[in-house]
Design a binder for these strands. Structure first.
Length: 274
DNA sequence: ACGAGCGCCTGTCGGC
DNA sequence: TGCCGACAGGCGCTCG
């Protein structure tokens, strides 16, 4: 499920708690179970389990689509990929069907990584840079100015959509928020990045930020069978709205495939490049 | 440098 | 009803 707003939402819930669920800050890891070994990318399962036990959660953050738990001695990084979720739940509950690993805390709570499609991964490392080194800038970071963003776009000759999905160009956008941002910016996903003028680049950056801010404010999108509590799916402009009217001009939204990803555009607002 | 194709996985949905 | 292909919020790899 996870793009930047969903990961940011989960990050906030882990940090601040949610309803009955407590914050994980200060929680002491007592035991660790792994049910799907490939869900742990690094280190070995044995070392992962041995090292994580006894550590305390000190900080919780996000970088791109990665969740970062800063522990006493190590960092636990989690990437949810397509279907992953992190759940804080009572330790006496039965293990749900798609739980891939569980951290048991003292005090009767646990953190479960649930992931039907098994694409998600966790890393336990001393230095997060080992995993995050190739990530591009955070789109919401004010240090990313419109002129810097324009220069980054000019530095390559790629289709806008695959470029925005490239995490080394910009960290955090996925298929939903890319389609939404391109629609808001009135830019066709096949436009070449170095064809944008200064004003278009600025419009794109502002659109990305506006869409991400809305997504975060709505606690992300909840679609398909995975429900997590966000409702941004009710405000989609283009994504998965094939045939429905464009909110700006009323023309029917079209679906095409760009870079092997389903892509949704308004054929009127987002003019196809020559 | 860039993009297509494919693998990794499970589940859902629409068509026949 | 049952089967089958298309598709799904991601990303790393190979190949041209």
């Amino acid at each position: 499920m996870p793009e930047l707003p969903e990961v940011e939402t989960i990050c906030g819930w882990l940090r601040q708690g949610r309803g009955e669920q407590p914050s994980l800050l200060g929680k002491h890891i007592q035991r660790c179970e792994v049910f799907w070994p490939r869900a742990v990318a690094m280190p070995s399962i044995a070392e992962f389990q041995a090292r994580v036990v006894g550590q305390v959660v000190q900080q919780i953050g996000r970088r791109g689509k990665y969740l970062l738990l800063c522990l006493t001695e190590d960092y636990l990084l989690v990437h949810l990929r397509m279907s992953g979720d992190l759940l804080v739940e009572r330790d006496e509950l039965p293990v749900a069907p798609h739980h891939r690993w569980i951290l048991h805390f003292t005090g009767g709570w646990r953190l479960a990584f649930n992931d039907p499609r098994k694409f998600g991964r966790a890393w336990l490392v001393q230095d997060p840079h080992q995993v995050l080194a190739d990530l591009g800038p955070e789109p919401l970071d004010e240090n990313l100015t419109a002129s810097k963003f324009h220069l980054r776009l000019q530095s390559t000759h790629r289709q806008l959509k695959p470029l925005l999905l490239d995490q080394s160009f910009l960290a955090g956008l996925g298929n939903i928020y890319t389609d939404e941002a391109l629609h808001l910016a009135r830019l066709h996903p096949l436009r070449r990045s170095d064809s944008l003028d200064q004003a278009e680049s600025q419009r794109l950056l502002e659109s990305i930020r506006q869409i991400l801010a809305q997504g975060i404010a709505r606690h992300g999108a909840s679609i398909d069978w995975v429900y997590r509590g966000g409702d941004f799916q009710n405000y989609f402009r283009a994504y998965q709205r094939t045939g429905q009217p464009c909110p700006a001009c009323g023309a029917p939204i079209e679906r095409l495939v760009v870079g092997q990803r389903g892509t949704h555009i308004c054929p009127v607002c987002q003019a196809r490049p020559a």
